[in-house]
Design a protein around this nucleic acid. Sequence first.
DNA 1: GTGAGATTTGAGCGATTGCTCAAGGTTGCG
DNA 2: CGCAACCTTGAGCAATCGCTCAAATCTCAC
Lengths: 181, 181
Amino acid sequence: MRIFWEKGYEGTSLKDLESALSMKPGSIYAAFKSKENLFLLAMERYFHNSLNLLNDARLTCESPMQALNTMINSIATGGSRDHRSPPCFLLKTVLTTSPDNKTVFSKARFYLDAIRQEFASLLREAVQAGELDAETDIEKLAMWLQSQINALRVEAQRDPNEPRLSWLAQEIITHLGSFRS
Amino acid sequence: MRIFWEKGYEGTSLKDLESALSMKPGSIYAAFKSKENLFLLAMERYFHNSLNLLNDARLTCESPMQALNTMINSIATGGSRDHRSPPCFLLKTVLTTSPDNKTVFSKARFYLDAIRQEFASLLREAVQAGELDAETDIEKLAMWLQSQINALRVEAQRDPNEPRLSWLAQEIITHLGSFRS
DNA sequence: GTGAGATTTGAGCGATTGCTCAAGGTTGCG
DNA sequence: CGCAACCTTGAGCAATCGCTCAAATCTCAC
């Protein structure tokens, strides 16, 4: 997953996978039937990881909006210590792979949609908790939120300057707060 | 440029370039010395096109902020008629090409920085015209603006749903307006 | 220890990659 | 027209691509 995430589908060669998996080509094709299929599995794993991260944040924090705040801030501050992850694997896939590889392309879009739905239900919870205006257009706000998070992660890769990123994150949170009832 | 823009560096083969340029490999290598060099030229052309678009908008509109508004809205409404362009070539390049291809990678970053500087000077002009608060942190706002525009263009590729995109564009413009003096 | 079944191995497949260069075409000047 | 200077051509190079498969190796019940 990591290799595909960093280098993309076409940028990753079988040699890369061999050394990353410590497997010879034969074993790779016995375990996963093709490079494409392995890529699809990597996306699936990434997808579930993302959902887990979101759920963990929700369970750790007291309110849905607080969960979002800490999530957004953790992107800005680098998340996992010194090793900063590339931007969203699914986003990179949608942007990178030519749409004539329909299997990969549409699966990436599907997962992105699913994550957006997860954001939506978190926002709905926030409405119920009175943290957001009851008349908020959840669908639109979820889309907005997802695109903002993606933009932040992209910016974090372009220039991992902590204060700037934190300011950006704060802008997102503040703007999100402006929908508060 | 178009081919590289759509399919990325590694996703574009010499065959693609041959048919796009209507040139045989020999001529391609006589005119541009390598695939990498041709890619760099494509990026340079894209960069200058972008600057021209920005300057044209500025000259057509009455004020700097109006120029920004029309630019942002034109991204949402599809810009050039029916054919929607992929997201920013430079952004895609930074996200796609592995950083071990340092020439390509750093040149893409350089151009992105240069465009951000162009945004910054447009914003400075807006301050002088009294359209923005004199105490605005131009550098930060330029970064914010660029990341917002990129996010909008990415979203436009993910789902080219006009009303949604226009709403997104309006959010950007409104938020930009909140910096008004 | 032995043999059957499962797994791993890596040489090497045909195809494609980015790229080269001798050969042939074109152009413009006298 | 002849000749020199340029440009285009495309077969084909070495390297790499994703991938296969017979043979070697491992695993484990008896």
